[in-house]
């Protein structure tokens, strides 16, 4: 029975990075770690109503 693929291999495959995983596995593994670290590097807004910036732009009426 073949070895189960590693967590990084599964994540790379899911991201469409099969070729990068095959040719540059250390770079892909480093990228997965970096992305995970970034997740906790800034505070999330406390208010559920906090809007992103820039906001989605509303359409403008002609002549407005």
């Amino acid at each position: 029975m073949p070895d189960a693929p590693s967590r990084d291999a599964i994540l790379a495959e899911a991201a469409g990075l099969g070729r990068a995983w095959a040719d540059h596995p250390a770079d892909v593994a480093e990228a997965i770690t970096a992305a995970a670290k970034l997740r906790n590097a800034f505070r999330r807004p406390a208010s559920p109503a906090a809007e992103p910036m820039p906001p989605y732009a509303a359409p403008q009426e002609a002549g407005a």
Binding site: L11, A15, G16, L17, A20, D27, V28, E30, A31, I32, A34, A35, A36, L38, R39, F42, R44, P45, P52
Partner: peptide, 13 residues
């Protein structure tokens, strides 16, 4: 490469 592993949620946050 890290760009491909940041979630949509992280981006909006």
């Amino acid at each position: 490469l890290p760009s491909q592993f940041i979630t949509g949620t992280d981006y909006v946050q």
